[in-house]
Write a protein that binds this DNA or RNA. Structure first.
Length: 426
RNA sequence: GGAGAGGUGGCUGAGUGGCCGAAAGCGGCGGUCUUGAAAACCGUUGAGGGUUUAUCCCCUCCCAGGGUUCGAAUCCCUGCCUCUCCGCCA
């Protein structure tokens, strides 16, 4: 949610900034609601004040043993007026709320203009794109060859976009996860965090998935409304919901491995083959909760932490700055890391690192106490995948394949594979 | 699943329908004292919002949502959560 004060002080700025993301904000409509809100709120509070004073007077008169009937007659009808005013105020506030919560975050000044992923800007590339002197296979064929990746059985058990992994391929995914968790905790200063995989609606509202993106979620319960997490971002970030974090605990750096569940509504034609786009996948997520003054640096750092995993795995990747049209609803600025997939001869997203500034914090009521002022201030939240484990598995299988169909295990993963160096095809 | 107890400020914990945004203690902050520190003593110390240049003033909040009342932390209803005992269980 955006800062309401900004709307009152510089509506034009808000409007032009929202236009950057193709959001047509009706300033007149807003102004109308805001003016009505102001008027009815003042009126309601005046009535409340009147009621409070009268009630106090009645209490005092009663204590003295005086006749309170005249006073009671005086407040006759006040209750009705108040109720009407309060109802009207509630309606207007609800209107204002739904207007505000539907608005995306304002973009950082450094975000390039553009409509879709074609307008994203490549910041850097790392590593050599591997060249093969044989006919390569993609991960689906390799997975089948190794009897380690079985989409048919996944479809039988559940449906499309589910998979069964077996033996060394399953183990390789687990090794990737373990390696990533260890690297982030031991080298990057994150605290390992285990969280629920089912969350309530308040949590999803806090991070911005609800109310707008309910279609992308799997709902597992009505009353109470509960959902499977689409990313660990949701439970981990919600740790600070309704909290005032002590200054000496800042910044918070948390890393969490969870499965992620996405209905992928609106992606029916995309990536139907293989492991790239599943309803259930494993991911290691990095979350930082920081002071406003530190968030831009923290965003750069967090992105580097994710990049570091790709470097250690010796996977070629590029870093992309998302353009205005491709940046997510809650984000001010997002870097995507795209890993080279030989099977697709393309760079594909394996991490997305975003700075939400105070947008989530305002929804979450997540604050920290600034010792300089003694006052609570909204935190800034930053998160990124570090990395998507399923896609990392795909990348390793495809980049490390041999002519015989073996999969060479990256050196850093070998300790997690019991010292194994190669997964043999036979 | 069965039975009971309870949710109050950063924490512990009192609270008779009006004088309660809330005793007391701890903690925090400021001061006195001290070369400095500790102790002691004194003072101060919740959040959000409205109006305002600002101060003042006002409103809301004692788990959440409804209700009763001129007036609710306090009474009533619903929900959520926590704890204890029993049962079951990885």
């Amino acid at each position: 949610m955006l800062d309401p004060h900004l709307f009152r002080s510089d509506l034009e700025f808000v409007q032009t900034q929202l236009k950057r993301r193709g959001c047509d904000f009706d300033a007149d409509f807003y102004t109308d609601i805001e003016n009505r809100r102001k008027a009815i709120q003042v009126k309601t509070q005046e009535l409340q004040n009147e009621r409070n004073l009268s009630s106090k007077a009645i209490g005092q008169a009663k204590a003295k043993g005086e006749d309170v009937q005249p006073l009671l007659d005086q407040v006759q009808g006040l209750g009705e007026q108040l109720k009407a005013a309060a109802t009207e105020l509630g309606d207007i506030q609800a209107q204002m709320q739904s207007l505000m919560e539907g608005l995306p975050n304002l973009l950082d000044a450094t975000v390039p203009e553009g409509n879709d992923e074609d307008d994203n800007i490549e910041i850097s590339r790392w590593g050599e794109v591997p060249e093969f002197d044989f006919e390569i296979k993609d991960h689906v064929d390799l997975g089948a060859m190794h009897k380690g990746m079985d989409f048919e059985t996944g479809a039988k058990i559940t449906g499309a976009r589910f998979v069964v992994l077996r033996s060394n391929i399953a183990r390789l995914q687990r090794a990737i996860i373990q390696f990533m968790l260890d690297t982030h905790t031991d080298e990057h200063g994150y605290s390992e965090t285990y969280v629920p995989y089912i969350v309530n609606a308040d949590s999803l509202y806090g991070t911005g998935q609800l109310p707008k993106f309910a279609d992308d979620l799997f709902k597992v319960s009505e009353d109470p409304d509960l959902y499977l997490i689409p990313t660990a971002e949701v439970p981990v970030t919600n740790i600070v919901r309704n909290e005032i974090v002590a200054a000496d605990e800042m910044p918070l750096r948390m890393v969490s491995h969870t499965p992620c569940f996405r209905s992928e509504a609106g992606a029916y034609g995309k990536d139907v083959r293989g492991l790239i786009r599943q309803h259930q996948f494993e991911k290691v997520e990095l979350v930082q909760v920081v002071k406003a003054s530190e968030s831009e640096q923290a965003h750069e750092d967090l992105t580097e932490h994710a990049e570091n995993i790709l470097k250690k795995l010796k996977l070629s990747y590029r870093k992309v700055l998302l353009c205005s049209g491709d940046t997510g609803f809650s984000s001010t600025k997002t870097y995507d890391l795209e890993v080279w997939l030989p099977g697709q001869e393309a760079y594909r997203e394996i991490s997305s690192c975003s700075n939400f500034k105070d947008f989530q914090a305002r929804r979450l009521k997540a604050r920290w106490r600034n010792p300089e002022t003694g006052k609570p201030e909204l935190v800034h939240t930053i998160n990124g995948s570090g990395l998507a484990a399923g896609r990392a598995l795909v990348a390793i299988m495809e980049n490390y394949q041999t002519a015989a169909g073996d999969i060479v295990i990256p050196e850093v993963l070998q300790p997690y594979m019991g010292g194994m160096k190669v997964i043999k095809a036979t």
